[in-house]
Structures are given as C-alpha cells and as structure tokens.
Design a protein around this nucleic acid. Structure first.
Length: 446
RNA sequence: GCGGUCUUGGUGAAGUGGUUAACACACUGGAUUGUGGCUCCAGCAUGCAAGGGUUCGAUCCCCUUAGAUCGCCCCA
C-alpha cells in the first residue's frame, strides 16, 4: 500500500515531464495567438456547483465525483471538469466587466471516480478553453479551430471532427417528447440500458452501441430536423465558417454529450487508434450555464482535451520530441584535495550560467569519466593535485576527445566555446553549414 | 458499476509441481599506476503482485485481495 499510488493515478516522472512541458508549451503558444488567457481555479469546489452546473442525473455527478465533507461540515468535491469552476470564477470576479467576450483557458488535474483503463484515469489532466459572452457562431468556429490547430500543430493525422447541434431547451424539449413517442412502442425490444434511459435522458438512446438497437436508429427522428429557426441558423453559421476555413467535419446527429449544460453546437474530435477512449477533445456551447448559476444569461462555448490521451496519440505516431539531455561540463576530480577545489570551481561555473556536474562518491577516474559520458557532458574538466598547484585544469572536449590545459580563470570562456560549437552543429543542416562550422572550430583552436 | 485477459529482478522477458529461476539491456566493479563512448570478464531476483489453501513439496493447481489491460458504460 505504502509503495503504490492510489488506483487510477500516475506519477509524471522526469523522463516524461519533457513531453508534458512540450505539449503545454504548444498549448500556451496557441492560446496566445488566439487571444485566450490562462485562469487557474481551485482543485476543489462546493459540491453544489457541480451538481447544478453539470446536472444531476449525469453519470459524472451521480457516480464519478470525489465528494467529502471537510472539517467544517461543508460538502466539497474535487473538480471533475473545469467549466463550472471557470464560470463560477467569471461571475464571482465579475470578469464580464472586462469585455463582452472573455476568452479563458486552463490546464490542470481533474478527478473522476471511474474504472481506469488506458487513456482513462481517476486523476487526469485537461486543457480547456472557454469563450464567454458571445452567441455568434464565429465563436463556436473559433473554438473548434483552436482545438484542431492544436492537434494538427502537434502533428496528429487521421483525426475526425464530429459535429452536431443539440438545440436549445425549447427545441430540445420538443425533440425529447418526439423521441419518446417514437421509442415508446419499441421499448420492450431495446436493450436494458436504453430502457432505463427512456425517461432519464432519451437523447442518449441514440448513442447506444448495442447492435440489436441499431436497426431502430435509422428511422428515429433527427434533432437537426427539429431545431427551432434560431438554432438552425446558428448551426448553419458554424458549418459555413468551418467550411470556409477548410475544415472537414462529419455530421453526427447522434452525438450527444453527457454533461447537461450543452446547447446548440456539440463536437468531438476523435483519434481512432486510441480504441475505446478515442475522443481526444470534446466540447460545445453552453448558453444556459451561467444563468443556471445565477448570472445574467451569457452565451458561451468551450471544449476540453485530455492531455494523457493527447500524449498517447502523439506517442503512437512518434511525434514526441527527442530527449537529448546534455550537461555543459562534468568535473572529474582526483583525490580529496582536488575534490574540494572542484566543488568550488563547479559552483563558480554554475554561477556563470553553465550546467555542471561532478561525482561525490570519490570514485576512480575511469568511473568518473563514465559518469561524464552518461550525463551527456560536452566537456570534462579534469582536476588532479598537479593541476591545482598550477592553477589550471585539463579541459577535454568529449565529442572530439581533444584536450588541453586551461587556466581555471579561463574555464567559463573555454567551456562556452565548446558548448556554443556543439549547439551550432546541432542546428546546422546541410554539408555546407557543417563544413563552415568545422572551419570555425579549427580557427578557434588556434 | 459489469464482463474478458494478464501480473516473474531496475527494465524487456524465457521457464518448470521437486536441490543453483534462462537470456538480453540497464546498473556496479575490473581488464599495468590519471582519461569516457567499442570489446572482454565479474557481480547483480533466498524469490516469481499480496494473502490464504491443496500437496511430502508450488513461481507454476485452487480461492481471496490489489493493480494493469481490453471491451461495455461514461468521458477527456
């Protein structure tokens, strides 16, 4: 027990934080270009926020929340998603005063008690975006394009954008009764799940994966045929802008999202190779949420993407950046005396901005050289009693194995030369560039 | 929450109801006294997820628990 993290949680270890930083960096850069600003909300909120926001009767609220009473007897819940929190923060801090369209993004841990699988964890990480205050279909399109730009910008291919409109409370209410009328006499033939969905959320019946139910779906009324004029115009507007932007989408009139607050636009982006957890991003419009929470009616759109799933997809396609950890210099010290001097020299070099390491175990020179190699050191600084007496160090270039005596006072400059050349070589492409760097290296040696 | 599969060292793994649990990688040390990357040699699981049971004897059989994984549900 003591040596195992709770089920469904993961450590992000040093060998993979690089991937996380990479993805988060791309996200931040993209959000800057789109004009979205970061918001960080608490990891936990009053339980009621989620009950009201996400909706009772949804799976997330009914069976997946981490809810507990704090020592003051308040019911607290670890956030299962971030939209409700962001809207709470928007209202509480009166962000609507800043602009009629407030564009926010977040990156952070979310918590849902569900059975873990690949791509599904109990603590997982989401990046999400919320555009608050504007009903224009352009905002829907912008949000969808942001999602697509992110995924494609990371290099992902073979994505599928599924699009639907779930209407507003007015037309959805009508559609709901139409659906119930349609399924009422077929109820006995539907699978058990669907029978229980019939009253609770008939729209979900459309989403049923049971083969036995599929024959009925074809004839079921489509929500897109039942939209009110405003909703239909809105949906047409979104589609027009997406087409204009060259985005391919598949209309899926059975796409129904599991959180109650969605209205009108609903979309998912899927990456099929992930299997059962193939949805890498999902979202839509939630025009009623802020009003539900006690604010003025404020139309909004957003989406969220699971970072773990994103990383899985990137890994599958080999799109994660290469890890090349290098150290500028590694100090090899021989003997106790030298080790003390070396420590001081290392600190000075670090102060000068270099990344420097050394061995503390008092190992043999050979072993220390191995360490230097393993650390990816560009140079080794070798210090024995003789060198110290002379005030010099042996500076060995680990890439070409050349070495010479250098006054300790010149170490920073000399190491920087080696490091600089190594970096130049890394970025140089083509034989010409390589050749001129070789020349440069030669001239520097003289 | 439901159903299926799986769980051997730091890692990838082979394997058997019976004295020493292959092999590879990694790691540590060594191969003429102060020089890495290649090669060679040596060391490295009293233990086969945990607990219980069957048995003269179990890592291999049975049960329970935990975790992983696949599918369902749901979602990111």
């Amino acid at each position: 027990m003591l040596t195992n993290s709770p089920r469904g949680t993961n450590d992000i270890l040093p060998n993979s934080v690089g991937d996380w930083n990479y993805v988060e960096g791309e996200i931040r850069n993209l959000c800057r270009r789109f004009g979205y600003q970061e918001i960080r909300t608490p990891i936990f909120e009053h339980t009621e926020l989620f009950q009201r926001g996400i909706g009772e009767g949804t799976d997330v609220v009914d069976k997946e929340m981490y809810t507990f009473n704090d020592r003051g007897g308040r019911s607290i819940t670890l956030r299962p998603e971030n939209t409700a929190s962001a809207m709470r923060a928007y209202l509480q801090n009166k962000l609507y005063a800043d602009s009629n369209l407030v564009k926010l993004f977040y990156i952070g841990s979310m918590f849902r008690y569900d059975r873990p699988q690949a791509g599904r964890l109990r603590e997982f990480h989401q990046f999400g975006v919320e555009a608050v205050g504007e009903a224009n279909p352009a905002v829907d399109a912008e949000v969808i394009l942001l999602a697509i730009n992110l995924l494609e910008g990371l290099g992902l291919k073979d994505l599928e954008l599924c699009l639907n409109s779930v209407g507003c409370p007015k037309c959805r209410g009508q559609y709901r009764t139409m659906l119930q009328d349609f399924f009422r006499d077929k109820l006995d033939e539907l699978c058990e799940d669907c029978q229980s969905r019939f009253e609770r959320s008939p729209l979900r019946i459309l989403d049923c994966k049971a083969d036995s139910d599929k024959p009925y779906m074809a004839d079921a009324p489509k929500i897109t045929d039942c939209l009110c004029d405003e909703c239909r115009d809105h949906f047409e507007g979104v589609k027009k802008l997406l087409t204009k932007a060259g985005v391919k989408y598949t209309l899926d009139h059975r796409l129904v999202r599991g959180l109650d607050y969605y209205t009108r636009t609903a979309f998912e982006i899927k990456y099929a190779p992930l299997g059962a957890q193939s949805t890498v991003a999902g979202g839509g419009r939630y025009d009623g949420l802020i009003e539900e929470m006690g604010g003025n009616p404020t139309p909004s759109v957003g989406f969220a993407t699971g970072i773990e799933r994103l990383l899985l997809a990137l890994e599958k396609q080999g799109l994660l950046p290469e890890k090349n950890n290098t150290t500028d210099a590694y100090i090899v010290a021989l003997g106790e005396n030298a080790q003390t001097e070396a420590f001081k020299i290392m600190m000075d070099l670090r102060k000068a901005g270099l990344s420097v390491g050394m061995d503390y175990a008092g190992r043999s020179m050979k072993a220390q050289m191995k360490q230097a190699n393993k650390a990816g050191a560009l140079c080794a600084v070798i210090l024995g009693d003789d060198e110290i007496a002379e005030g010099v160090a042996m500076l060995r270039n680990m890439t070409d194995s050349e070495q010479n005596k250098v006054p300790v006072a010149d170490l920073v400059k000399e190491i920087n030369t080696v490091v600089g050349l190594a970096q130049l070589k890394k970025f140089a492409t083509g034989t010409n560039a390589q050749a001129s760097i070789e020349k440069l290296a030669e001239s520097l040696k003289q």
